Amino acid sequence: MHLGHGATERHWLPLGGWYHASKYGVEALSDALRIATAPFGINIVVAEPGSIRTEWSAIAARDVKENATGSAYSTLVNGVAKTLTASSQPDARTTSATKLIDKTIVKIVRTRRPRSRYRGGFGSIPMLFLHWLLTDRVFDALILRAFAV
């Protein structure tokens, strides 16, 4: 089972290209393995839980500020750091609790023939829908606005 970032093939954060490139790569590997291992009865499942409330966001916020403050990206850095910090708080409305991952994994393990992809959690499905509905330029503008840029 590959536990992905959350709708990774169509979701990204500003300044996170390096991170999302690795996630896309692992997702592509999972998709390829699903086909290659199917003849042996092995199910490869990608779980994309969306934004989960963990300390990762606070760490990422700190790191982006340490490495990019004072650069040409200062405005974007501040917006990204502010959003990431807020999403790591216990009462954050823009993230899901870690229990969501637990429930999803249990569901996958208990399912005789699991789907190849499970999505859920805050932002996962709505973000995919918005990306499908909007042009790239409009979606980009929406993301920049969400990060106060």
Rank of each mutant, 00 (worst) to 15 (best):
G123T: 10
H11C: 01
G120Y: 14
V80K: 03
A86I: 06
A32C: 12
L100Y: 15
A60W: 04
F147Y: 15
D91K: 11
T104A: 12
L100G: 15
G123W: 09
S88D: 09
T8I: 03
A141Q: 12
A38L: 11
V26E: 07
S124W: 06
G17Q: 02
I105T: 08
R119C: 10
T85V: 02
L33D: 06
W132I: 03
A92D: 05
A72K: 08
T83N: 09
A36K: 12
A81E: 02
I44M: 14
E66K: 14
V109D: 03
T8D: 09
E55P: 01
R117L: 12
I35F: 09
L15M: 14
A7T: 11
K82D: 07
S116Y: 02
H20G: 00
A7G: 15
K23F: 00
E48N: 07
L134N: 09
V149H: 02
E55T: 10
R62N: 04
P14G: 01
L142Q: 12
T98Q: 07
D136R: 14
R10N: 11
S87P: 02
F147K: 04
G4M: 02
A58Y: 05
I108Q: 09
Y73V: 00
S96K: 08
K82C: 01
L142E: 06
P126C: 10
S87R: 14
A141K: 13
A36R: 09
I59K: 11
V149T: 03
T37S: 15
P39A: 07
G50Y: 15
W132Q: 11
P14T: 01
P49C: 15
T94W: 12
I52E: 02
W18Q: 09
Y19H: 08
G121M: 03
E55N: 09
R145T: 03
R115D: 08
K103T: 13
R137P: 02
S88G: 15
V149M: 04
Q89C: 00
A148V: 03
E9H: 15
V80H: 05
G123Y: 11
G6A: 04
L133F: 14
W18F: 12
A86K: 14
A21W: 05
R137Q: 14
G79V: 02
T83L: 06
N78H: 05
G50K: 10
S30P: 06
T85N: 13
R110V: 00
S57H: 08
A21E: 09
T111Q: 13
H131N: 15
A7V: 05
Y73P: 00
D102R: 07
G123Q: 07
G121S: 05
S71F: 00
D140Q: 11
A7C: 06
I108M: 13
L29M: 11
A28W: 03
T69A: 10
K82P: 01
A47V: 15
G79R: 07
H5A: 08
A60F: 00
T111F: 09
L133D: 00
I59L: 12
T135W: 00
L142M: 15
